[in-house]
């Protein structure tokens, strides 16, 4: 009996990601959810600009490549063109979603657009060679902060889930990570819920996945997974930041 294999929603193309980069794990979790919900045939994914720019090469569902940061705007149009049939997700890095695309993110959340957003936070601009992102940690050494991020000069990193949770609009916001088998299981559950919410017509559901970038963090894949525990999670705590339907259930 097969207990584990590549999900159907991923094709056989090898990922171009660096060795040990957790983008690949997150792709797989999305694909497993498409398989389990039986929605591959009616799903349209929106790829970002960033290391995952070629996500459209890997998924078997339809994919569109958006201009940098504009994925939630494209997703809005695709979803509204056939809300009953289209299942729409964006897959975006932290530079894409929280820097150049911040306006699109905030307004899609504020409108409670019925889409699913997979937000890959690796605290860096991976694709372009490791520049500081709006999510880079205080003191983090990057190509553009060689002495470490100085918050007096560059400001503080943005906690996207906490920030969006202040809005009335969004349905569901959760932060997860994929640096261990246990955390991968929890991340899958959150991603599945974010898609199920869309099928149930509940609205904007974002899962922030704290991810690694061994290449630009300048460490081995193993050290990068530990760096998530030691440095990322204290600043970006895991958890559910908003779940409107669950909150309603409780007050009943």
């Amino acid at each position: 009996m097969v207990v584990f294999d590549k999900p159907h929603a991923l094709n056989d193309m090898p990922f171009h990601y660096c060795p040990g980069c957790t983008h690949g794990i997150i792709h797989r979790l999305v694909a497993e959810v498409l398989d389990e919900l039986g929605i591959e045939g009616r799903t349209i994914g929106i790829a970002p600009v960033g290391c995952s720019v070629m996500a459209y090469d890997y998924f078997n569902c339809d994919m569109i490549e958006a201009a940098h940061g504009r994925a939630p705007a494209i997703a809005t149009g695709v979803k509204r063109s056939d809300p009953e049939n289209h299942v729409v997700f964006t897959y975006q890095g932290d530079g894409d979603l929280a820097s150049i695309g911040m306006a699109e993110t905030v307004h899609a959340a504020a409108r409670n657009e019925n889409i699913t957003v997979i937000f890959v936070n690796n605290a860096i601009y991976g694709m372009t060679g490791g520049q500081m992102a709006p999510t880079s940690l205080p003191g983090q050494v990057t190509q553009t902060s060689p002495y470490g991020r100085d918050v007096n000069h560059c400001g503080y990193p943005i906690r996207v889930c906490e920030m969006l949770a202040q809005l009335e609009g969004p349905e569901y916001l959760e932060r997860v990570t994929v640096n261990s088998v246990k955390n991968i299981r929890a991340a899958k559950k959150a991603i599945k819920k974010a898609f199920q919410n869309q099928l149930d017509g509940k609205g904007f559901s974002l899962v922030e996945v704290v991810s690694s970038c061994p290449t630009n963090w300048g460490m081995t894949p193993q050290a990068a997974l530990k760096w998530i525990d030691d440095n990322m999670l204290p600043y970006y705590p895991l958890g559910v930041y908003k779940d409107r339907s669950a909150a309603k259930e409780e007050t009943k």
């Binding site: 060795p19 690949g24 894949p221």
Partner: peptide
């Protein structure tokens, strides 16, 4: 092992 593999190249049968 298969769940942790970023490149999804391990198939497990039991």
């Amino acid at each position: 092992c298969a769940m942790m593999c970023p490149d999804c190249i391990i198939k497990v049968e039991r």
